[in-house]
Design a protein around this nucleic acid. Structure first.
Length: 143
DNA sequence: GACGACTTGTTAT
DNA sequence: ATAACAAGTCGTC
């Protein structure tokens, strides 16, 4: 069973779930419907600034193998921590650029915290707009 | 510090 | 094949 709902933040955060497993999270100007399930509550708590660990949720990763490897690595970055593209590249024996490319393919931002990956000299990028990445890091007390 | 050129792995077309 | 990238490094000034 597929379900979709939105959480209001600085933008709408739309979440898509299939049988309890999250397969897509997007930031959007348009919302869908707001609900009161466990996942939505966790997002609300998160946006309120509480320390929420989204690792307890299963996700559906419909991505190429390399992207999956990168995302699985990023998933374990704890709340409030950051790491650089270069450091991940070193761990996975690949190039920083490949890491950025892979992260841009992340179907479930926040749940897989790609915003915790930054550049060596600046914040790096964020597909939905860099300001969102900044706000997320502020939420977590990094900025 | 600021800037440019060169290197780089993976994906999508 | 090749273009497109959410990067990094090393030079020069």
């Amino acid at each position: 069973m597929i379900e979709s709902f939105s959480v209001r933040w600085k933008v709408f955060v739309n979440v898509y779930v299939e049988d309890g497993r999250i397969f897509k999270v997007e930031f959007s100007k348009e919302g869908v419907r707001e609900v009161d399930n466990e996942i939505a509550k966790d997002f609300i708590r998160y946006f309120r600034g509480e320390k929420v660990d989204f690792r307890k949720y299963e996700v559906i990763l419909n991505v190429p193998p390399f992207v999956r490897r990168v995302l699985e690595f990023v998933r374990d970055i704890p709340y409030g921590n950051v790491i650089t593209y270069g450091q991940i590249a070193k761990e996975l024996k690949t190039s920083p650029r490949a890491i950025g490319k892979a992260l841009s393919l992340n179907p479930v931002p926040i749940v897989i915290p790609c915003h915790r990956v930054v550049g060596a000299r600046d914040l790096g990028g964020f597909s939905y707009g860099l300001w969102i990445k900044r706000e997320l890091l502020k939420l977590e007390g990094v900025l």
